[in-house]
Amino acid sequence: EGALPEIRWRCASSFPKSLDTIYGAGEHVAKRVAALTDGKFQIRVFAAGEIVPGLAVADAVQGGTVEAAHTASYYFVGKDPTFAFDGAVPFGLNMRQLNAWLQAGGGREVLREFFEGYNMVSLPAGNTGAQMGGWFRKEIRTVADLDGLKFRIGGFAGNVLQKLGVVPQQIAGGDIYPALEKGTIDAAEWVGPYDDEKLGFNRVAPYYYYPGWWEGALNLSFYIAKPKWDELPQLYKDALESACRDSTIETMAKYDVQNPQALRRLAAAGTQLRAFPREVMQACYRATFELYEETAAKNANFKKVYDHWRAFRDSQYQWFRVAESTFDNFAYFMHAREQQRP
């Protein structure tokens, strides 16, 4: 048993430092790894754009030009829609269930081969929980209101909404604010109250919709170049795995503390909270599963992961309906009633 080697890695994040929680999840991994290896295994995290642009981090890890990356896998659905399962899919799992699938339910195993095709390993490292549906200039009352709605929304959810007449518009990042302000687009979505507050969209779009059904939970991923992972001593692999798990707990806790406070601030600033009407949600739900079937028919990778994911979801939904959601619903209901009758 020789001395442990000194290892230095660069980790390219997909996020700017201003998103302190989501970017911080990557930094947290680096800090924990250093602490667990007595400072011998050092990972330096670079914000989006410092080494490569935020959306290029998968290419960088795949090509081995950085050793690691911290990102959200659904950014890469253009390469293959299967990536989405590692991040978030519409009407998917909540944070607990997604975590269960990835950590212990066989999700990571079923995705492993897929990621090896890109020469990398993906570890869950951070979670945002359920996100918000975004900022709207006009109210959505019926499915018909979706028709012609110009919505800045990327990825898989854009495809779902397109089926219902929405016009997904991926306009330039810097154009979003003025375009939303002047009505060039009707809506834009981002993350949840804490991160959205910083963008100030509340100033230009009054209605804040929930839930972001396309992100019932977003798992953040720590990508590692496969050859670099294989080279690691077992102790370092263990440290990295632990650090990533730790980061998931850490970010979820931070978001759960920050989001309610931010939501109150937004409400105080005049934001009007709106829920997507049930009719709209139902139409979206149906369109989503149509799209899954269509995609699975065309893409073998997708089908393999989807089948596994769906079976897992079925068992989770059933279990959560027994104790978890009965408990949650009852407690929220009683609490709300008490608040209404002081």
């Binding site: 290029a56 960088a60 330039a172 154009d175």
Partner: peptide, 21 residues
């Protein structure tokens, strides 16, 4: 040397920056 392999990604990032239009 692998580190310099980030160059294509950066160059592509410049071309893909819609604001420069």
């Amino acid at each position: 040397p692998a580190y310099l392999g980030n160059l294509p990604l950066r160059v592509f990032g410049i071309l893909a920056n819609d604001l420069l239009l």
